[in-house]
Write a protein that binds this DNA or RNA. Structure first.
Length: 991
RNA sequence: GCUGAAGUGGUGGAAUUGGUAGACACGUUGGACUUAAAAUCCAAUGUCCAUUAGGACGUACGGGUUCAAGUCCCGUCUUCAGUACCA
């Protein structure tokens, strides 16, 4: 009986689906375990072999946990709002919902055939109105909340209003916009409703604010930084400028400190936590206010080095800073405006990354030093970013490298305030060694003392205070796109109003075109039925807008991260229509025990999700304030691209009329890899051969033309991507397939290796369609089976690492499965016997149990595949047929290769699914060794080994080793200076 | 630029607390079986020197600590990822 993997896999996939083998219950006697994958965006290209990597790892873990007796929740769904579907809609007119549905169907089919143990009854789709109803609901909760610094949590906005009504805003300790004017209770009551709403908006956890965006006028849309290349749009190459726009923002900054502290509670990788810490960017320092000479204006800055305040020799504002136009003197106006225009064209990332180009402009204005009252010139410079801190810095060139470079470049004086330090060549940035000088009351102090004193003095004169700053900026939550969650928001008199929760979901309206409107409004501006009727509580036609009872709806949609910031909670109770999940379900599952996904989400998804979780926790909606206990990042599988090497010379024909360069008979010439490399390095012989081949071939094809070569230098050697499916495991190109690939390759001519094959070059690159290196899991599954695919993906290397895919290697794991099969089944059927296991059988089994269990718990899946191979090799050598060891082996293997394990388990006479079997118990007694093969080293170099009893004493080992003739041979008469004996490990003889 | 990660044979990778570098596979070479091919099985395979015995070198590069370093320390280089509207 042969190993018919296709039949076996289909059979068990059907069995699992029919029996709902992996459906999780929200109540159980068993302990719970929640294994989650970052859900995929269903792209039109379908899955390639890189995508399932993390899913296979989490599936192994989920199946392992079931064997361990846990009630496992292992769901899957789709992050189905996003740009690609919208882009496709713009190009083709296809509704994104239609393409998304098709793409999901493809994904589902592909996922199913890999044999994942997902509980599909809990599937979620972020673009499903029944799902985004709750995303909208969370948005409303955020709108109706403010952050109370005294209680250190989010509270309902009504508590804030009642404070305003009784005390005004002076006593409120809230996270809010800067510079909110103070008002009394009486004033509050006197405000119009609109004025009150405007004030409250400055406190809400989601609010409208002006934010800077990358605006592309030609495309009529906002672009992400990575959609901009060299200052122009990636698509179309249109100019992009920085522009202010009113958008929804999320007050994530309110949670900065808790997001930072919470990292200590979760078991995530250190590198990921470090990224988040860095992103949050806590810095302790001071806020300092500089007065501007001859003006009422003040410049607020934040500095981490208030100790260096006497070193300030200029101020730098971001070119976008509000004060710039006000401060600039008429003489400097032209220069400043030109500079602002130039800056607007640069992306933020450019400005951060490029430290070599120093640019700026003098505004002509002067600030006043808070203590010396000396004038300080005010500059603008694009190294200061508007969105960071206050968008202005006090520049201390002696203590900051960028300030130093700026001062040098513009010949601004550099004041040295450090004792005993030479700053003629570079700034001095070492806080630890700082001794302040030339600084009035700070003289002689170290960094710590001077910082305290400077803050004290600033507070005394009312021009500063100690402050903790976070780099974390509030997150922009509006997108000028179609394919996202609509906001449950309408506008009355320009003020946003929430639609009551019972009327949700507000579903996406139909539009004619998915592009921005001609007036530059977002795509929802094209909708004709997009107004809110406050009496009927439904979406009605725009024509009915009367601004009395019928009002316009919000035209922006929510960003991609909205739906993904809480989906892990929805899986706990995904079909609930009354609540986003029931209390019982939330309290039972609580949080994710293991979360697997890509490290590229480190600061986006993973930070926003933590933010929402903490908010929902404050509101009492979820029981824990961190949603994932443990998180593992899987690496990426890269493609192994294949290259053919095209060569040609410029050709000259003496008989023009008889020869046409566009002649369909005109061939392409390719040279094999090793010869290409010789040619490239200028090998004369190789070039001569290629040239002769080239000429003689052409003259053969065009006998009537007398073809000659042009200039010697005209040799063209071009590596070209070729589809990896045309190449075998030995890098040989299937020339027939290649010729049939494209019409212009049909007549190709090849210079081959000396053995007659054409060998391609290889290079590891990201897997992508354009590089022809995409490998489809469907093909792998049909050729080798899902179990082989699963094993091979794990076998490739450590989960977290980036590693190249090479289909050729899969024969290794496939052969392993065939060998495994043969251990159980031969031509006559099942050959497993009731024979007692031998000592060797038990040793192999228990060695394998130990290693595999350790590996799974350490997420080292690649090494357990090797372990299985070793076990099967050993059992084969031992001619083992004993059920006593072969049955538990199947349970060990089943998380990795579930189909073959189920099949053999079934053939052994078990009627229940192998997923219900208990994981085998490790028994150390089978591994006890009585002797050790000691490596004997001389000066650290291993020369030979000696078999010695495990219980031999140190002295006896030394004596036995010294008595060995090989030892004497190695020593050649010398007396060793020292003999190191580490019992059970090694012997090292020094001398 | 900043932050994070990685660098070991022809290839993917293994190596417990510092203790036999290259497990397990792929590829390559040779052999068995076969009319032949496929499949399967066996053997060799880090590089260099040597007929063998054996030896030298070897974990990106340069130093250091140690009886002993892929592993620890210092410095350098290279590659990849993130960098706030790709998902």
């Amino acid at each position: 009986m042969i190993y018919d993997f296709n039949k076996i896999e289909e059979k068990w996939q059907k069995y699992w689906a029919d029996n709902q083998t992996f459906k999780a219950e929200n109540q159980s006697e068993k302990p719970k375990y929640y294994v989650l994958d970052m859900f995929p965006y269903p792209s039109g290209a379908g899955l390639h072999v890189g995508h399932p990597l993390g899913y296979i790892a989490s599936d192994i873990y989920a199946r392992y946990k079931r064997h361990q007796g846990f009630n496992v929740l292992h769901p899957q769904g789709y992050d189905s709002f996003g740009l690609p579907a919208e882009q496709y809609a713009i190009q083709t007119g296809q509704h994104p919902a239609v393409t998304t549905k098709e793409n999901i169907a493809t994904y589902r089919r592909q996922l199913d055939q890999i044999g994942f143990s997902f509980d599909w009854s809990r599937e979620v789709r972020t673009s499903d109105p029944q799902y985004y109803k709750w995303t909208q609901w969370i948005f409303i909760q955020l709108f109706n909340s403010w952050y109370n610094n005294d209680t250190n949590k989010a509270e309902d906005i009504s508590t804030l209003i009642s404070i305003f009504e009784t005390e005004g805003n002076a006593t409120v300790n809230a996270v809010c916009d800067d510079n909110i004017a103070a008002f009394t209770a009486a004033e509050w009551k006197g405000y119009t409703s609109k004025e009150q709403q405007a004030i409250l908006l400055q406190y809400r956890l989601t609010y409208l604010a002006e934010t800077e965006v990358n605006w592309c006028p030609a495309l009529g849309t906002v672009l992400a930084n990575d959609e901009i290349v060299n200052g122009v749009s990636e698509r179309g190459g249109h100019p992009v400028i920085r522009k202010k726009m009113t958008q929804w923002s999320m007050r994530i900054s309110a949670y900065a400190e808790r997001l930072l502290q919470g990292l200590d509670k979760v078991d995530w990788t250190d590198s990921l936590k470090e990224s988040q810490r860095n992103w949050i960017g806590k810095s302790v320092g001071a806020a300092v206010t500089f007065k501007v000479k001859d003006s009422d204006a003040v410049i607020d800055v934040f500095t981490t080095r208030p100790d260096t305040i006497f070193g300030v020799s200029f101020m730098t504002l971001a070119p976008e800073h509000d004060l710039v136009s006000q401060l600039t003197t008429p003489e400097q106006k032209a220069e400043v405006e030109a500079y602002i225009l130039a800056t607007a064209k640069r992306s933020e990332r450019d400005r951060m990354a490029d430290v070599k180009t120093i640019s700026g402009a003098f505004t002509g204005a002067y600030a006043e030093h808070p203590f010396t009252k000396e004038p300080i010139p005010v500059w603008i410079g694009d190294y200061v970013l508007a969105g960071y801190g206050t968008g202005a810095v006090m520049s201390v060139p002696c203590g900051d490298e960028r300030d130093y470079a700026f001062a040098k470049h513009f010949n601004i004086p550099i004041i040295n305030i450090f004792e005993g330090v030479d700053i003629s060549e570079a700034a001095f940035t070492d806080k630890e060694k700082t001794v302040i000088g030339n600084s009035d009351f700070l003289n002689g102090m170290n960094y710590k003392k001077a910082t305290k004193r400077a803050i004290f003095e600033l507070e005394k004169i009312g021009q500063g205070e100690g402050k903790t700053n976070y780099r974390l900026r509030d997150a922009v939550f509006s997108r000028q796109r179609y394919w996202g969650e609509p906001f449950p928001v309408y506008y009355v008199d320009g003020m946003p109003q929430m639609i009551a929760a019972e009327h949700l979901p507000i579903t996406l309206p139909e539009v004619e075109k998915y592009l921005p409107t001609e007036t530059g409004e977002p795509p929802l501006g094209n909708a004709t039925v997009w107004a809110w009727d406050t009496t009927k509580n439904e979406v009605v036609s725009n024509d009915l807008i009367d601004n009395e009872t019928i009002h316009p709806l919000e035209l922006n949609t929510m960003p991609g991260w909205a739906g993904s910031s809480w989906y892990f909670n929805r899986y706990m109770d995904s079909t609930n229509t009354e609540e986003f999940a029931s209390k019982e379900a939330l309290n039972y599952w609580k949080d994710v025990d293991l979360y697997i996904g890509g490290s590229e989400h480190a600061t986006g998804h993973l930070l926003y999700s933590r933010f929402w979780q903490k908010f929902l926790f404050d509101k009492g909606v979820v029981p824990v304030d961190e949603f994932a206990k443990k998180l593992i990042n899987q690496g990426m599988i890269l493609g192994t691209s294949a290259f053919v090497y095209r060569f040609s010379w410029m050709i000259v024909s003496n008989t023009d009329e008889a020869f046409d360069i566009l002649d369909p008979k005109m061939p392409s010439f390719f040279i094999t890899k090793s010869k290409f490399e010789k040619m490239k390095s200028g090998d004369v012989e190789e070039i001569k051969n290629a040239k002769e081949f080239f000429l003689s071939t052409l003259n053969e094809i065009f006998p009537d033309s007398d073809i000659k070569l042009g200039d010697e230098i005209s040799l063209q050697l071009v590596p070209t991507h070729v589809d990896v499916s045309f190449v075998n495991s030995s890098d040989e190109l299937d020339i027939e397939q290649f010729k049939n690939w494209r019409t212009d390759y049909t007549n190709s001519k090849f210079i081959n290796e000396d053995d007659g094959t054409y060998k391609v070059g290889r290079e590891v690159e990201k897997m992508s369609k354009s590089k022809y290196n995409v490998v489809n899991p469907d093909d792998i599954v049909s050729d080798y089976g899902a179990d082989s695919l699963r094993l091979y993906e794990m076998f490739l290397g450590p989960l977290e690492q980036y590693k190249p895919w090479n289909t050729a290697g899969i024969t290794g794991v496939h052969n392993f499965l065939k060998k495994l099969w043969k251990l159980y089944v031969d031509d006559n059927g099942l050959k497993v016997s009731e024979a007692a296991a031998t000592k060797d059988n038990l040793k192999t089994l228990h060695k394998t149990i130990k290693k595999v269990q350790e590996d799974i718990e350490n997420f080292s899946f690649n090494t357990s595949v090797s372990t299985f191979m070793i076990a099967v090799n050993e059992f084969t050598t031992q001619k083992c047929t004993s059920k006593e060891v072969l049955e538990p082996l199947l349970v060990l293997l089943s998380p990795y290769a579930p189909h073959i394990a189920e099949e053999l388990w079934n053939q052994l006479g078990n009627s229940a699914s192998i997923s219900t079997a208990a994981f085998p118990e490790f028994d150390a007694s089978h591994l006890v060794e009585s002797s050790k093969n000691y490596p004997i080293s001389f000066n650290g170099k291993m020369r030979f080994t000696m078999e010695l009893p495990m219980d031999m004493s140190k002295d006896d080992i030394e004596a036995a080793v010294m008595a060995n003739e090989k030892t004497q041979e190695q020593l050649a008469g010398r007396t060793p200076k020292k003999v190191i004996v580490v019992p059970g490990k090694i012997v090292n003889i020094v001398g």
